[in-house]
Design a binder for these strands. Structure first.
Lengths: 223, 223
DNA sequence: TGGGAAGTTGACGGCGTGTCACCAATCTGT
DNA sequence: ACAGATTGGTGACACGCCGTCAACTTCCCA
């Protein structure tokens, strides 16, 4: 297991808003987070200990507790980091939408593409004895859900959507997005476009208008 | 914290297929499982230890390991128990279906009603710091998913469904079922019928035919 | 340059883990 | 009905992880 260190500072004298103390603090926090990502992915969430994380680091065990209370909190910070990356993308994608189709399609397409590209979590989260999944609804993740619901409510107000239960609709989109993204990532030829097309069609027109394929057999079967 | 014991045997001499040894084994296993349900619900999964479980029991710590390898395995056994209860209900409900509407509606209705009645897990599973959700896909749970996919494939073969990606459709139903059931359980007036109507309409006709409610405000939806 | 503040370190007491030698209860064959 | 064999319960033990804290090092500012 490699130890994680940030690259040596390129000695930029200017544009330095913070002192050495503050710099080191941010650095240490990031060192711990980076190490945690690797260790979680390697051993699974349940099996990793705070000691495992800190051992993958040049820091001492006591230092860990200056930054996080527990491995749960590290995990939460990781989730927040991820949520903060994807949320603006989703928001932006939906903002451009002028039709229901664009709204739904943009949401799924953006999400699935993100999962395939940066989907480190998906693999890491489930490593737990290969059967345990975890989802932590951190403040930033919940904020992402709220944004989706707000956007739905706005769309309803604009007359873009009919007046439906925005909470349940948001929940449905979230459920389909997470569940399909897992299946998608397992397929030999993971295809974000195809997955987004499926989900979009489902939400747009329901089962009757789902894309037809050759037989009942999809591209290929996962597990 | 109460200790869990099974009721004293009513001294039924007949209909006894097993010896004392075998009886005690099944009893102990059940004692541990019952205690685990309570302890998990009380402290949350992450915070409970094998010791917590065994302390809620008249058994010794070593005995635990004669039945389970870890708390994960206890949890898995709990999930399997639950899955074995609901799977036949779901299967039976779908078997009667002669139309798409019946198929979908029966699935959601059965699931949501089960969650509301026996939904101990839902509360227990998420107790973890109030932000951590867990889902363990145990063999029996996976078998339940497989059954749903098989039923979809059969329905496609019978011409009941158009030829769609059965795997993704199954995943979507599962995702919507889990995600909505959580929101439903949180609502002041949890209504399985309303939730099932929403999910059914979503899958039957898509967003355009979702049930309309007064305004964008949830609470509950009519029909 | 010196004194105080901030942060790091690693050893420590407490606890949970999984094991194992020992023992009690049950079973089996006569 | 009894004794030896077998199964399984018991709790103490060695080990490792947890979170803390007094001592120490580094940085900041006057």
């Amino acid at each position: 297991m490699e130890q994680i260190e940030t690259a040596p500072p390129p000695s930029r004298p200017a544009a330095k808003a913070t002192g050495k103390r503050e710099q080191t603090k941010q650095q240490n926090r990031q060192i711990i987070l980076d190490a945690a990502r690797i260790v979680f992915a390697e051993h699974g969430y349940g099996a990793t200990t705070v000691r495992d994380i800190i051992r993958a680091t040049p820091l001492a065990s006591g230092t860990f507790y200056n930054y996080f209370q527990s491995k749960e909190e590290v995990y939460q910070a990781m989730q927040d980091e991820t949520a903060l990356v994807i949320r603006p993308k989703l928001r932006e994608a939906r903002e451009k939408a002028t039709t229901v189709e664009e709204f739904i399609s943009a949401t799924f397409q953006t999400f699935f593409e993100f999962v395939l590209r940066d989907g480190v979590d998906v693999r890491a989260l489930r490593h737990n004895a290969d059967t345990m999944r975890m989802r932590m609804d951190t403040p930033e993740v919940i904020a992402g859900f709220d944004e989706l619901r707000e956007d739905i409510e706005k769309a309803i107000a604009r007359g873009l959507f009919p007046p439906v239960d925005a909470d349940y609709l948001m929940a449905s989109i979230v459920g389909v997005a997470f569940e399909i993204s897992e299946r998608m990532a397992r397929r030999a030829e993971a295809d974000a476009k195809a997955a987004a097309d499926f989900a979009t069609a489902l939400f747009l027109g329901g089962i009757r208008s789902l894309p037809h394929i050759a037989n009942g057999n999809p591209a290929d079967s996962g597990a």
